[in-house]
Each structure stands twice: as structure tokens, then as C-alpha cells.
Write a protein that binds this DNA or RNA. Structure first.
Lengths: 143, 143
DNA sequence: TATATTTGTATCGTGAGCGATATAATCGTT
DNA sequence: AACGATTATATCGCTCACGATACAAATATA
């Protein structure tokens, strides 16, 4: 109903369950990511690098929809953890090349079971997960 | 497919569009909330108080699924903005009663158009919004 | 009525997010 | 070659989130 999308009741807001679900799902990752010594945003960076190693910051920024003011300190912490290296490109010194260390690459095997671990934790059917995925990407693509 | 929920590809993760959609939708609120001089989490607190004024911190914590370590400083900032008062309960001094000021109450009228403003911004059909809402609450309720 | 437990809130430290702005390297245009 | 525009990243300041912990008030139990 139209009133449900335009009232000021908390229960009628779509944004609130989105905000809350995002936080709660992130918290679901915490136990297993803690065993790897990383945070959820750091895990996302690793997902990018496991697919495309040795990319510049902008590449990661584009894939994760994050900006340099978020990524620069985040990547510095990952460097301190020994997961990545940060090297200025020789061909274009504006670029900083982010590459996995041996540790960062090795972590991929330890992370292999994380998606299944989470799929088991979330109380969604395959069909609901598919619907949610579809709607969220529609949201992201056009907002 | 099962592999889609259990691979380490960024595109196969359900958590990532959830995390991103949440951030992007919050960013959608920023322009209109800026005109009111408040942030998105502060807006959520106001939604609670506009429905139930003069409640303790735990009530807000329960409704928003946030903890005191998040809410205490957030509420202090809202007090400094002149939106709420924070008063110790006389019957039980452990409780701190959060109540709207006149300013806080007045803001409700200025916020009345926010839900419609956002519904127009989000590229979802009524049916998609309903589905999303339903799935997200299922997620929140059981995680 | 002491004392242990529970409850409600606050404090501390760390890591995001993000608007605004800065800076240096590169590119385009003249 | 000079210089303005663009690009890539970094810095600053502020506001969340949240785990861990502290602390006082209230309650339960001995």
C-alpha cells in the first residue's frame, strides 16, 4: 500500500531493515573472519585481489564502490598485517599498485569455506537468496 | 546454483550487494537529512521517538538493534543539537529517559515528505519493494 | 540485612565510511 | 615548452558500529 512506503513509522521504512540486515550479516562474518585476523571490509578487498592481483587502488574502489578516503587507511592496515604490498607504479606514479603477499594468497585456502559457512547461517531459501540478490543489484545499479 | 553461493567470487556473494545497497541508500538520505541538520542514524532515533516519546535508552536500543556503546554518544550529540533531553529516571536511576524537545517534535512535520522522497529515488517497483522488505525482515528475525 | 547477581548505561579503543579538501603526476591544448 | 585541466591518491575531521569492560542502581538470595 502506498501509505506503507510514505509513512514515518519505523516499521514502514524499507531503509531500516536494509541497514539492520547489512549490520547483522556483517556480524555473522565476525567469528570466522576473526580466526583469519581480518575485518569484513578487508575480506571484501581480498575477494577482489584473489580475482585480480596487482591492481591499483581505483580498481578496488570501483569494484567495491568505496573511495580513497576509505580505502587508503584500510589498505595501509592490510599492509601492516602483511597481507598486501603497496607500490607506486613506475609507468604512472599517481597509481599505487596493490598486490597480495604470500600470506595474502595463502589466506584464500583458509577462506574457501566462508561462503558455505555463511549460506548455512542465513535463514533464506535458494529462491529467496536469488530474489534478494536480484533486487539488491537493481538497487545498486540505479541509485 | 550451489556454486554461486559458495564461491569466493565477489559477484557470487550475497553479502556484498547488501552491504553496498545499505551504504548507497543511506547516501540517498544525506541531501534531505542535511537540510534538517541530522544524520541517518539520528533520523532512525527520531522515527522511534515520534512513535514513542519519553522512553529509556534500552527501548531505542531494542527497536533499532543498536547497543549502548553506539547510542550513548549518538544521543549526546542529539542532545547538543537540541533535539532531545536526557534525564535520569526518578523511579529507577539506572534508566535514562530520552524525550523530544519542542524542536525535535517540530522536525516531524519537516520530515513528513522524506519517505516519499526516497521511494521516488529508489528504482524499485511496489512489488519488488514488498519482496525486499519481506526477505530482509526474515533475515533480521533469524540471524 | 548483608551479599551476590542482574540490569541499564557509560567508557575505551579500533576500524570503518564519507564530505571536503589537498597534492602531485599526467594529459591536453595552445 | 608552458600552463590549465584532469586523474589518482592522500589527509583531515566527524560520526557511526562494536567488542570488551566498567560501574552504579536495583533485585534476588542466603
Amino acid at each position: 500500500m502506498e501509505t506503507e512506503r510514505t509513512s514515518l513509522k519505523l516499521q514502514d521504512q524499507l531503509c531500516f531493515p536494509l541497514y539492520t540486515a547489512s549490520r547483522l550479516v556483517t556480524q555473522c562474518y565476525a567469528p570466522i573472519l576473526n580466526t583469519l585476523g581480518i575485518t569484513y571490509p578487508q575480506y571484501l578487498v581480498l575477494l577482489v585481489l584473489w580475482e585480480n592481483d596487482a591492481v591499483n587502488l581505483s580498481f578496488i574502489a570501483d569494484r567495491l564502490q568505496l573511495q580513497s578516503n576509505t580505502l587508503t587507511p584500510l589498505l595501509k592496515r592490510m599492509q601492516e598485517l602483511g597481507l598486501i604490498t603497496r607500490t607506486r607504479s613506475e609507468t604512472d606514479e599517481r597509481n599505487i599498485i596493490i598486490a597480495l603477499t604470500t600470506n595474502g594468497k595463502t589466506l584464500r585456502q583458509e577462506a574457501a569455506n566462508i561462503p558455505q559457512y555463511l549460506a548455512d547461517k542465513l535463514p533464506l531459501s535458494a529462491e529467496e537468496a536469488r530474489q534478494l540478490y536480484h533486487i539488491l543489484y537493481k538497487l545498486i545499479g540505479n541509485v
